[in-house]
Amino acid sequence: MKTVTLIALSLSIAIVLAFTAAWSQDDMTVVDNAAFNNPQRTPSVFVHDEHNETAGIDDCAECHHVYEGGKRVEDESSEGQSCSECHDLQGSGNQPSLIKAFHANCKGCHQEQGKGPIMCGECHIK
């Protein structure tokens, strides 16, 4: 009986820890894909702090951008929001769909910089 309780307890702690890890940028290791129903690929690998350190990104708005009327708003950032708040699954008009937004944000920059992964399986690791 003791063992069962012990296992149950450690499992609950692990789950709580896992969730906090996922929600805390400090320990973020993959991109949040909760917005996708039935995602076809594993969430993209993304170690937030390590990435930004390596890439030398200080400005949050570099990725957490804000657009208004199709134009990027300087000096504003959106790190408090989740990407899917603006980018829905379908996309509309100039607003890219969530998949396309992720790909443009990550892969687009990697292509521009000539650095970082660009092939599907380099981020969506099995």
Binding site: M119, C120, G121, E122, I125, K126
Partner: peptide, 13 residues
């Protein structure tokens, strides 16, 4: 092979 990421992924891709 690329989908399952078997063997050397970048090369296979």
């Amino acid at each position: 092979l690329a989908y399952h990421q078997w063997l050397s992924y970048p090369l296979v891709m």
